[in-house]
């Protein structure tokens, strides 16, 4: 065998992956060829370095997190009772609240349509799990998960014409718009917006509404913004509130009080369905 052929076999030779006949040929060649011996030694040192990796202890919390998700993400389908949307004549947050269907549940959600079972899903787990540690980071992870692309508010409307939402430059209470993002929930577009008020973080996420969804970790609580049934998911001080109309599920993540500040913000980001 020529040196070039031997070099192709050196890796498998050092990995003990060669048939015995070929291995003997390589061994014999290395006995006779100093250059290939040096190459073999270099590869051997590289292998040794690669094998000397520092140990990586498994975090104690990992199994608990897995078990928690095993308990909470089992596919228990929850179908909210039908509530007729009544959009006409809505004024203010209470009327808005009365006119929406609030999707129940988080976790993995099938999108509402006749082909809902075949549709891609929206998972808020990555957002909720990391919230207590760092809300900004949790939101960034959510953006990454759904291929976020930053867009202008106008572009957001153009890319997601089927969704009804608003991302004004300011929200009631003095929150200022920091960024709008186009997301991809499978084949469906979604929109996210990030707001700030003197370091206080608020995010809004809009996606196609759901009729059926796998129940998440939350409890089905009394409505947070009005008379309709609904829910919020609370993780520490953080609340993720869903407000759904026939075209769009509006989700707001904030630490705001649901009786005072939140309703006016929900009313702005969730305009009447077109």
């Amino acid at each position: 065998m020529r040196c070039e052929e031997i070099r192709q076999q050196l890796g498998p030779y050092l990995d003990n992956e060669l048939p015995s006949g070929v291995e003997a040929l390589v061994s014999a060649h290395l006995e006779a060829c100093k250059t290939c011996r040096l190459e073999s030694a270099a590869l051997n040192r590289l292998a040794s370095q690669l094998e000397r990796a520092p140990s990586v202890p498994v975090p104690d919390a990992l199994w608990n997190s897995i078990e928690h998700r095993l308990d909470t993400e089992s596919p228990r389908v929850v179908t909210p009772p039908p509530i007729e949307p009544v959009w006409a004549g809505r004024r203010g947050p209470l009327a808005l609240a009365a006119a929406v269907i609030l999707a129940v549940g988080l976790g993995t959600m099938g999108l509402m349509s006749s082909e809902s079972h075949a549709q891609p899903s929206v998972s808020f787990c990555v957002l909720l799990d990391a919230l207590p540690l760092d809300a900004h980071k949790a939101f960034r992870k959510f953006l990454v998960l759904y291929d976020a692309k930053q867009v202008t508010p106008v572009e957001a409307r153009r890319h997601a014409p089927e969704l009804s939402f608003d991302t004004p430059t300011t929200l009631p209470g003095g929150f200022r718009l920091q960024g709008v993002y186009l997301l991809r929930f499978g084949e469906r577009p979604g929109i996210a917006a990030r707001y700030d008020r003197n370091g206080e973080f608020l995010a809004a996420i809009f996606h196609t509404p759901v009729r059926q969804e796998h129940h998440g970790t939350h409890k089905d609580l009394p409505c947070v913004v009005g008379q309709h049934r609904g829910h919020k998911v609370q993780v520490g001080d953080w609340k993720l509130v869903h407000l759904t109309d026939p075209t769009t599920c509006h989700c707001v993540l904030s630490r705001l009080d649901e009786q005072s500040e939140l309703p006016s913000i929900m009313a702005v980001v969730a305009p009447p369905a077109r």
Binding site: R2, C3, I6, R7, H29, C33, T35, C36, E39
Partner: peptide, 8 residues
Amino acid sequence: PMHPKGSG
């Protein structure tokens, strides 16, 4: 590695 011509 640079092999001498004809080696191997």
